[in-house]
Design a protein around this nucleic acid. Structure first.
Length: 594
RNA sequence: GCGUUCGUAGCUCAGCUGGAUAGAGCGACGGACUUCGAAUCCGUAGGCCGCAGGUUCGAGUCCUGCCGGACGCACCA
């Protein structure tokens, strides 16, 4: 089953094409043949112009007529044609100057929406059917806890995964834990210097925060011991050599870090299908590079390192393997990509990684292409911008990094205060839990609302606000819809004595919402196609906002007419369901009460 | 310097891939609660869409140049 809006538009495109061809035939214009793909459809800017618009400008040349006249004549042909061959999805054809506008049959659409509110209308889109899409995101270092930047990464990856899945794809979420390297050795060194064998429990710290504390302490160590950097390097070499003591310490601290990070994932409600660990993958790719060297794709530089020359496409020269034969970042990424493809041949692999690594991914993709992997065409770097705060940029050294757990704590506290202020304790039940769901809704919506490519400003106060363009606002509207249903189920109102009659929900204000509902699948496809949850975020806010206006003007249960009650109730069910689905795709917890 | 990217209301952001009078939210000002939750809603004010060219019937959207910001240009990740 095609989606309603798509189906409508495609159908009308082909009708308009037929009518244009008919007109061309009548005018004996032989070269004017058009297929439905040539027809440009548009969403009219105002409701008076109907539901689908077709501008006629571009046909003026071949028809040698002014656009307005083409519109008039085509509309004529259409009206005759639709009389004889009735479209499956009915509508009325009108003109407005150079535009042909289609007015959909409101009763027909209303009937469709109500009948399918919880059924196939909401089924996943066919756009990505059968597509295997791998999405890599998060990829934390295990020397410190997650911060605000990771939260944007996580929610982008998680939301995009859900959207792609909703659009029909088979999605595999993967995470590569960076659990080795010089940064971890720094935490280890500082722990050796100041830790005195203590554990996170001893200090009452979440385990990843405990590790992070020693990473910060490394700066102090550097001041006290000028050779600290060198010692960290030594530690890394010992680690690579398999020194038992070093490995044991690494395992201990690494587990603490990973354990804490996983706890944050659970809290943020993001999850992964597969984890890879750098300590297992960091040597991958070396053979590939050596083989590329043997095949003459790469070359050995004078200093002994193996490099690739990408000057011809403006990417310069890039080292792929150190002169001592050891792997670097890009070496292992080459190996990891190949391993992943062999393990699960994907149609597309999306890397959700900050924009600062754009160059890296260009090189990586090009190297894989030159190695002859044709699937390298299907690698995609979803580059996203930095998250800044109203107070300025986050900097580790200045201690202005916003910790992920602390931020969620703070947002939760603010939400709990609000619940208390509004005297909603009894209605919500578990305040702490609901407050945290509101905190997540606030955080996630705010982070997703901005197009990924852009740097953004995160304003915690504004994000948690219950009015305006925020997550809690969307949650509130969902809760209001739920509240109406709850009252109905408790026997309030007389909807159960009425019969659903679609002609009772075709007013202008009904129609505005109805149209939004049928655009939901199309919006998901747009989001999936563009890999951009912000499109869906904007849609969801609009849906919530229009529902807010609608329920103020259209009493559902408080209505003398049982048929109106029943019909509006069915409508509320459809709206609530859409809001619930949309919220879920945006990682905004749906709440029945807040 | 080179590359990538962004520049839209006082602030934070949209603008459906080139179409009809450029939209939201916040903030400001003014209104609406004996009626399904006022954590809401309505109204008003606020714009040479960074600047200048170009393509087009038509440009916030595409191409070029300039200006301004961000991020890259490691045998770090």
């Amino acid at each position: 089953m095609e989606h309603l809006m798509e189906y409508y538009v495609d159908q009308w495109k082909s009708i308009i094409a037929n009518c244009l061809n008919e007109l061309a035939f009548q005018k004996e214009l032989k070269d004017a043949y058009l297929s439905s793909q040539d027809i440009i459809a548009e969403k009219p800017p105002r409701p008076e112009f109907g539901d689908i618009g077709f501008p006629m400008f571009s046909y003026a040349k071949q028809f040698r007529m002014p656009p307005a006249r083409i519109a008039a004549e085509v509309a004529n042909v259409c009206n005759i044609k639709t009389d004889t061959e009735k479209p499956i999805w009915p509508g009325t054809v009108k003109t407005a100057g150079p535009y042909i506008n289609i007015y959909l049959d409101k009763k027909y659409v209303a009937n469709y929406v109500l009948e399918n509110a919880e059924k196939e209308f909401w089924e996943s889109s066919p756009l990505f059917n059968g597509r295997r899409i791998m999405i890599e995101f998060s990829c934390p270092n295990t020397n410190k806890p997650l911060h605000l930047g990771h939260l944007r990464n996580n929610v982008l990856g998680e939301s995009l995964s859900r959207i792609m899945k909703e659009a029909g794809a088979e999605v595999k979420k993967v995470n590569l834990i960076n659990d080795r390297g010089i940064h971890i050795c720094k935490s280890m060194l500082a722990y050796l210097a100041y830790g005195e064998g203590r554990t996170p429990e001893d200090e009452g710290l979440k385990s990843d925060h405990f590790v992070g504390k020693y990473y910060v302490l490394f700066n102090r160590l550097k001041d006290e011991d000028p050779s600290a950097e060198e010692k960290a390097q030594e530690l890394l070499q010992k680690w690579e050599a398999g020194d038992a003591d070093v490995i044991a310490l690494w395992e201990k601290m690494n587990n603490w870090a990973v354990e804490g990070i996983m706890a944050t994932y659970r809290r943020q409600k993001v999850s992964f299908d597969e984890f890879d660990f750098e300590h297992e993958t960091y040597k991958l790719g070396k053979e590939e590079v050596l083989e590329g060297l043997a095949r003459g794709i790469f070359y050995r530089a004078e200093d002994g390192s193996i490099q690739v020359d990408l000057e011809d496409i403006g990417l310069g020269k890039k080292v792929l393997l150190r002169k001592d034969g050891t792997s670097i970042y890009i070496t292992q990424d080459i190996g990891t990509a190949i391993m992943r493809y062999n393990r699960w041949p994907f149609h597309e692999l999306v890397y959700v990684v900050a924009s600062e690594q754009q160059y890296h991914f260009k090189v990586l993709f090009e190297v894989l292409r030159r190695l002859g992997y044709n699937w390298a065409e299907n690698l995609y770097h979803l580059s996203y911008g930095l998250v800044n705060l109203p107070s300025g940029r986050m900097k580790t050294r200045e201690g202005t990094v916003v910790d992920a757990d602390d931020l969620i704590d703070e947002l939760t506290r603010l939400a709990a205060n609000e619940i208390a202020d509004k005297r909603r304790e009894e209605a919500v039940g578990d305040i702490k839990d609901v407050a945290e769901q509101v905190a997540l809704g606030a955080l996630h919506y705010f982070l997703l609302q901005v197009s990924p490519a852009k740097d953004m400003l995160y304003n915690p106060e504004q994000s948690i606000s219950f009015t305006g363009d925020t997550g809690p606002y969307i949650q509130y509207m969902g809760a209001r819809a739920s509240s109406i249903l709850r009252k109905y189920k408790n026997g309030e109102g007389n909807a159960n004595q009425g019969k659903i009659n679609v002609s009772l929900i075709v007013s202008d204000s009904d129609w505005s919402l109805m149209r939004l509902l049928i655009e939901f699948p199309h919006t998901i496809e747009q989001s999936a196609k563009n890999k951009d949850p912000s499109i869906l975020a904007a849609y969801t806010h609009q849906l919530a906002s229009e529902f807010s206006v609608w329920y103020r003007d259209n009493p559902v249960l408080n209505n003398d007419n049982p048929d109106i009650s029943a019909s509006r109730l069915a409508f509320v069910i459809a709206i609530r369901e859409t809001l619930r689905r949309a919220s879920n795709l945006l990682c905004i917890p749906f709440l029945d009460a807040m």
